[in-house]
Design a protein around this nucleic acid. Structure first.
Length: 638
RNA sequence: GCCGAUGUAGCUCAGCUGGUAGAGCAGCUGAUUCGUAAUCAGCAGGUCUGGGGUUCGAAUCCCCACAUCGGCUCCA
């Protein structure tokens, strides 16, 4: 037997007989190294604790309290769920079951449907399997052997998966626990006894291999944790997230409604929501002027031939609404770019004019499929903080960098963290290969030049060009695209845009489509959840509310009210015949930043006593002092 | 669009196996005039999402539509 040399994370080294199990190698390093371990990492590869180690390298334990470790645990729980499901429902066909953020799922093909009672039964069966402490065992077989095995078991999906593996894959690995064997890369926990806390959450439809042309399977979602305590904490988080849900807060704070009678995906902004939106839009206009944008406005409907020329008719028709005016077909705009290009085309442009930056708070309509609508974040009519920048190819990079800076600044203002993705050419696209390469390279170089961290999203670009997407997360960690920068060589070509260069010749400009907040509706949705409805003073639709202790202070209260309104403070009054505690509570539930208490003392001294939303009492102060306080909190945003 | 669940007063929700609808909060009226998260009493409020059907009788059972919720696909 030959020897292997092993290095541990603390740089101690040992040598072992080749083929010793990873778990044993770890155990001989530190006594408790495998106590919380669910797998091992050998040279950056995850393996089972029971896997024989046959090569030199660095080894470490993967503990269940790490993100990777809990992923292994959840993946193993999904196998246990599949075992339980097959025992309870023998004609179910298994497909795939990975771990995901916060849990796991497994997709099954089953002619009937799983009910909540079924989930309960499955859960009980899983607990029994866990109690058995059955070991997970791995074996490698040839792909032919695996195909035979799954054919015999009557598992066509598994057979399809194996058959679709690349030709150079000669063997596959199988994992067995109890009587259940699954095609799986692994690794897995040593035995089902490691499963201490799990819960099945819900059933949902999911297409086989994520393709809507394929059969719809039934996906069971669940979650699992190292300990019941961690799982309890997770459910507390879920409850908190539900309290932050913008659809709930939108109702409670009286910001907006979506009315069935009016139509799905259409937002009706109530006074407070409209105020919030106005504040954001005013801020945006100002920020755009600072950065050299021109404000423009285009019509809501444009003749069909415009959409034919742009390619929307070929590539976007099913998402558009159409209408007819005097027998002439019109398309309701789903994007703002066409009008902006017509502005560009309205006269001859010189290279000296570029870049031109046209900004519009443009309202667009998109016919979203019914199942995708979601509060403010996925709607059928929305307003974009849209701009189109027409520039020379040489100016592209600095313009993209400037936009990325703008995004960074804006997200800083609202306190958002975000992720960046570069989306490349989709299958259904217009434009030449060369233009796509140039456009993609321009975006990528700007990201790299700015040392931004980003992921690549293959084939997810717009039909006219690649894009950089900036994604924000909502309270339930769902990601929403807000800002985006799209590089477009195709539309300037289609609309024959040009400028006169220094050489006196015509040249083609490049167009950048970009939004900073994206859809204002969506952004506000995410913003509501981000602040849990407790908006900072500069954004709060109501900044302060006057509350009287008794009716006798009403005349003074009215005086203060008029003064604050006049100064421009967004103030309300609550002079109802209720006890102070009642009014404080109502203002608190409305998350108003300042409650201005007026009792006899305040009337006598010509003051108000502000109580902050956080419960802190600021004591009596003059109205002027309060105004200074509020203005101080808003100054950064003016 | 697809899969599943849900749809009762302005809001949150009860309403068992079919026997003609109930609470809390909000609203209105009155009493009370009170110092930092709910004062008391009374009143009013519903074609039980809509449309068909089964039945002597439907909020309850069946079918269809619409909407919402959770996913899938798609997407700002």
């Amino acid at each position: 037997m030959s020897k292997i040399d092993i290095r541990y994370p603390d740089d101690t080294r040992k040598s072992f007989e080749k083929g010793l199990a990873a778990g044993e190698i770890l155990a001989s390093w530190k006594k408790d190294a495998v106590k919380d371990a669910v797998a091992a990492r050998l040279n950056d590869r995850l393996i089972d604790l029971s896997s024989p180690v046959t090569e030199n390298g660095t080894i470490d334990a993967v503990n269940v309290n790490t993100p990777e470790g809990v992923g292994v645990l959840r993946h193993s729980i999904s196998h246990v769920m599949a075992e339980a499901v097959q025992e309870l429902f023998p004609n179910v066909k298994v497909t795939i079951g990975p771990s995901i953020e916060d849990g796991f799922y497994y997709d099954f093909d089953y002619e009937s449907t799983f009910t909540p009672e079924d989930l309960k039964k499955i859960e009980e069966r899983m607990a029994e399997i866990a109690a058995k402490d059955a070991p997970f065992t791995r074996r490698e077989v040839s792909r032919e052997e695996a195909v035979e095995l799954f054919k015999k078991k009557g598992e066509p999906y598994k057979v399809e998966l194996i058959n679709d593996l690349p030709a150079d894959v000669k063997t596959v690995s199988l994992y067995t626990q109890g009587d259940f064997t699954d095609l799986c890369r692994g690794p897995h926990i040593p035995a089902t006894g490691k499963i201490k806390a799990f819960k099945l959450l819900n059933v949902a439809g999911a297409y086989w291999r994520g393709d809507e042309h394929n059969k719809m399977l039934q996906r069971i979602y669940g979650t699992g944790f190292a300990t019941p305590k961690e799982m309890a904490e997770y459910f507390v988080f879920i409850e908190e997230a539900k309290r932050r849900d913008h659809r709930r807060l939108g109702k409670e704070l009286d910001l907006f409604q979506i009315n069935e009678e009016v139509g799905p995906g259409l937002i009706i902004w109530h006074p407070k929501g409209a105020m919030l939106r106005t504040i954001i839009e005013d801020w945006e206009r100002k920020e755009h002027f600072k950065r050299g944008y021109d404000i423009v406005l285009g019509p809501q409907i444009l003749r069909d031939h415009m959409w034919i020329r742009s390619g929307h008719m070929d590539h976007y028709k099913e998402s558009m609404y159409f209408t007819e005016v005097e027998k002439e077909g019109y398309g309701i705009k789903p994007m703002n770019c066409l009008s902006h290009m017509m502005i560009y085309k309205s006269k001859i442009r010189s290279y000296r004019d570029l870049p031109l930056r046209y900004f519009e708070l443009g309202t667009v309509h998109r016919h979203e499929k019914t199942g995708v609508l979601h509060g403010l974040t996925r709607v059928r009519q929305f307003t974009q903080d849209d701009a189109h920048i027409l520039c020379t190819p040489e100016q592209l990079n600095s313009e993209i960098v400037a936009i990325a800076d703008f995004v960074k600044y804006a997200m800083g203002i609202f306190g958002f963290e975000y992720e960046v993705e570069l989306s490349t050419r989709p299958s259904n696209s217009i434009g030449s290969d060369r233009d796509w390469e140039m456009a993609t390279a321009a975006l990528e170089e700007s990201l790299k030049g700015n040392r931004m961290v980003y992921d690549i999203n293959e084939g997810d670009g717009a039909f006219y060009g690649p894009k950089i997407d900036f994604k924000l997360k909502d309270a339930l960690k769902r990601k929403w695209q807000c800002a985006t920068i799209q590089c477009d060589f195709a539309l300037p070509e289609r609309f024959d845009l040009h400028y006169i260069g220094a050489d006196g010749e015509k040249h083609r400009p490049v167009m950048l489509h970009r939004v900073i907040l994206g859809s204002i509706e969506r952004f506000i949705g995410v913003l509501i959840e981000h602040y849990a409805g407790a908006f900072p003073v500069w954004l709060a639709p109501v900044q302060a509310i006057l509350v009287t202790v008794t009716d006798s202070q009403i005349p003074y209260g009215e005086e203060v009210y008029r003064k604050l309104l006049d100064i421009g403070v967004r103030v309300e009054k609550d002079f109802k015949n209720e006890k102070l505690g009642h009014k404080i509570r109502e203002a608190q539930l409305q998350k108003i930043p300042y409650m201005l208490v007026i009792g006899d003392k305040e009337v006598a001294s010509g003051t108000i006593s502000p109580r902050q939303r956080d419960g802190k009492n600021l004591g009596a102060m003059t109205v002027d002092a309060l105004v200074d306080l509020i203005r101080g909190k808003c100054s950064r945003y003016e």
